[in-house]
Design a protein around this nucleic acid. Structure first.
Lengths: 257, 257
DNA sequence: TGCTACTTTGGGTCGGACCAAACAATCAAC
DNA sequence: GTTGATTGTTTGGTCCGACCCAAAGTAGCA
C-alpha cells in the first residue's frame, strides 16, 4: 500500500526514509469530513445525512466503519439518529446540553471539590447577572418570577433545591449567552447534588435565599446591571461561605491528625 | 418477554396492554455502565479495560457492540485506545482539552458571533486573573513571563497572536481551576482565529497589549487580586472595543440596503 | 552480542446476514 | 369516500466470522 521510492536497498535493508506516518482510523476520517461539512453549513440542521448503506457505497467503506463515524458525531451532538423508515442521521447543532454533560464529566472525573465549584460559580454568575440585566426579555423575567414563586412555596427540600437550580438557570438563560448557560447548567446540577444531603438548608437559609433572589431579579428587571452584579456576587459568596462553614463543622469530627 | 395482564382478548385480537417500554441501545447500556464505574473510581486512570474479545465473552454482546461502547467512551475522553500488543482501552480522566473541544463545537455550530465571544471573555477572564493572583505558583509566574517575552519580541503576526493566546492561557492555568481553563482555552483559540486575518493589529496595538499584560502579570505576581481583576477587565474590555470599532469600520462598506 | 525473524496479542476493517422499528402504501369494510 | 387494519419497504441495531495490521515480546541465528 505505501508507495516506496526506488531507493537502492543498501547495506542492511529497506531504508526508505519515510515520514513518521500517521495511522488515521477510517471512521475518524469520515467523521472529521462530515463534521467539517456540517460545521461549514453544508448540511443545515434538520437535514438527513444519506442512509448508512448509501454512505457505504459512496465512501467504499464497510458499514461498520460508517456506523462508527456516525456514532462519533452523535456523541458530539452533531447528529441525532433515528431508527425506522424515514429514519437516519439528522443534522443538529450542539447546545448547552452538550457543554453541560462534558463539564459534568470533568467535574466527576477530576473529582473537583465543592469549594472549587462554588469558586467557579462566584467567578461566572455575577457576569451572567450583568448580561441578564442588559439583555433580558419579558419571557426571561417570567421564568425568573416563576422560579421565585416556586422557591417561596413551602415545599420539600428537593423541591426547594430544584426551584433554586431553576432560578439560577433562568438567570443564565436571560444572559442569552449559550456558553455561560452551558457551564452554569453543569455547575448548578453538580452543586445541587453536592449540597443535597447536607442538612444545612433550614428555614432561615431558605428565607435569605428568597430575599437574595428577589433582589437580583428586581435588578435584572430594572436593567440595573451594576446592582445585579453586586447582589448576585453577594448572594453566591454568602452561599459559598455558608457551605464552607457547614463543611468545617461537619468535618471537624475526625480525630486530630 | 412482556408480561400480559389477564385481559379478556375481545373481539378482534391480542390486546396485551403493555407499558410504553424503552429500547435502550445495547452499546449505550454498556457505555453507561463502564462510564459509571470509571467515574466511581473502580478503574483508576491508567488501568486497562479488558480486551474487546474478553468483554464480548463477559457481556454476551457482539464485538461490534462492545467496540461501539468503547468508541463512545473514547469520544468522551474517558478512555484512550491503543493498538498493537499490550494495547487496549486505557482509562483516563477527561481534561481541559475535552471541554475546549466541546465548547469549540458549540461556537462553530451555533455560529456564535465574535462579539459574544468577547463578551464571554470579559465575563470570565477577570475572575481568572483574580484566582490567579490568589493561587499562582512560581511555575505559573514563569509561564506568564515567558509569554510576555514572546509577545514583546518582534515576530510575525501569527507569532504575536500565538504568544497572546499563550499568555491568556497562562493566566487561566494560574487560576488552577480546570473548568475556567477549559473554557478559556476554547475561547482563546476561537478569538484567535476570528481575529487572525483582520489587519487591525498594528504596532500600537501590540505595544498597548504588552503594557496591559505586564500590568496584569505584575498584579498576579504581587498577589494583588483587586488590581489583577481591574487591569484584566480594562484590558479585555479595551480589546473588545477595538475589535468592534474595526468591525464597524470594515462592515460599513456594504451599500445601504 | 546483536540482529533478524517469528509468534502472540491486541485493535481495525470488512462482508454478510438477520432483527426490530417506523413509516408508506394498499386494500377491505363501513 | 372515509376509516382501519394489513402488508410492505426502508433504515438503523445487532450479531457472526473472517481477515488484516501494528506493536511487543521471544526465539533463533550469525
Amino acid at each position: 500500500m505505501p508507495e516506496q521510492g526506488p531507493t537502492e536497498a543498501g547495506a542492511t535493508q529497506t531504508v526508505v526514509a519515510m515520514a513518521p506516518i500517521r495511522a488515521p482510523k477510517a471512521a475518524d476520517v469520515l467523521a472529521d469530513d462530515l463534521r467539517e461539512r456540517i460545521l461549514r453549513g453544508a448540511f443545515p440542521p434538520g437535514t438527513a445525512l444519506p442512509p448508512e448503506r448509501e454512505l457505504v457505497t459512496q465512501t467504499h467503506m464497510s458499514r461498520t466503519t460508517v456506523r462508527e463515524a456516525l456514532r462519533i458525531l452523535e456523541v458530539q451532538g452533531l447528529v441525532r439518529i433515528k431508527t425506522g423508515r424515514a429514519g437516519g442521521a439528522f443534522v443538529q447543532t450542539p447546545g448547552q446540553e452538550s457543554v453541560a454533560s462534558t463539564v459534568n464529566l470533568l467535574i466527576r472525573g477530576r473529582q473537583i471539590r465543592l469549594a472549587a465549584l462554588l469558586e467557579t460559580r462566584e467567578a461566572i454568575e455575577p457576569s451572567c447577572a450583568q448580561l441578564a440585566a442588559r439583555y433580558r426579555t419579558d419571557e426571561d423575567l417570567a421564568r425568573l418570577d416563576a422560579a421565585n414563586v416556586a422557591i417561596a412555596a413551602d415545599g420539600s427540600l428537593a423541591e426547594f433545591l430544584q426551584a433554586n437550580v431553576d432560578w439560577h438557570m433562568a438567570v443564565a438563560l436571560a444572559s442569552h449567552n449559550e456558553l455561560l448557560t452551558g457551564v452554569m447548567l453543569a455547575l448548578s446540577r453538580s452543586i445541587y447534588s453536592a449540597t443535597d444531603n447536607q442538612g444545612f438548608i433550614d428555614a432561615m437559609v431558605r428565607d435569605v435565599t428568597v430575599r437574595a433572589h428577589t433582589g437580583v431579579t428586581n435588578a435584572i428587571r430594572a436593567q440595573d446591571a451594576d446592582a445585579a452584579v453586586r447582589r448576585m456576587k453577594r448572594h453566591v459568596h454568602g452561599y459559598a461561605e455558608a457551605v464552607v462553614e457547614v463543611e468545617s463543622r461537619t468535618t471537624i469530627e475526625m480525630p486530630v491528625d
